[in-house]
Design a protein around this nucleic acid. Structure first.
Lengths: 98, 98
DNA sequence: TCGACAGGCAAGCAGGAACTTGCGTATCGT
DNA sequence: ACGATACGCAAGTTCCTGCTTGCCTGTCGA
């Protein structure tokens, strides 16, 4: 639980999640490249790799190996736990507004 | 935005939010006492005060002064921004399941 | 087979976060 | 008025985090 928030606390990691939401299943180098081009974040390969480790440990990213490539997939299920923790859905959610 | 996640990354601060959700409008000393009794967190007064400052800066807690007392109120609206950022409500939310 | 590519491991460093310590200020009760 | 209460401010300490640096492993193409 705390790992999820700690992972989301970093802007580079949030940019990684945004990038994966837009295009799922990217490799490390793809993410490095698109992070600079589309998000203006200029981090080294090792830095991004360590960020992805943190995201994976938090359960926000799942990986799949294939040969020498490692694809990263977004998993938003830990975020739903946040919604339920502070009951964000039962007060005046965007679904059933009477 | 980043301030919200950074504030939520700390377990003591999450306990403070839980405590405020259960009983809104508490003072600093009330929160210190109940943090030990109900959450098992033994932090000093200054530590809790600094945590509340972080939460207030993140917009998760709003304060109201009255004489020598300062009441703290929970505000979950920054958390709703999280829900909308990763579209947690439009995929298969707990409201309108077809 | 050999070089290039994709990624991993680990030590080290600079900056920040959390907590403590000590003192200061404003408010309330008596 | 005076002490007690509720809280604020600021420096110092310790620990964690993010990033770099350097080297290593595994995989693919020519």
């Amino acid at each position: 639980m705390g790992d999820v928030f700690r992972a989301l606390a970093d802007p580079t990691r949030r940019a990684l999640l945004d990038e994966l939401q837009e295009r799922d299943g990217q490799t490390l180098f793809e993410l490095c490249t698109r992070l600079i081009q589309r998000h203006g974040v200029g981090s080294s390969r090792q830095a991004v790799s360590q960020h992805l480790e943190v995201l994976e440990q938090a359960g926000l990213v799942r990986t799949r190996r294939e040969g020498r490539y490692k694809f990263h997939h977004l998993d938003t299920s830990p975020l739903r736990a946040i919604v339920e923790r502070w009951r964000l859905d039962t007060e005046e959610g965007p679904c059933g507004s009477p």
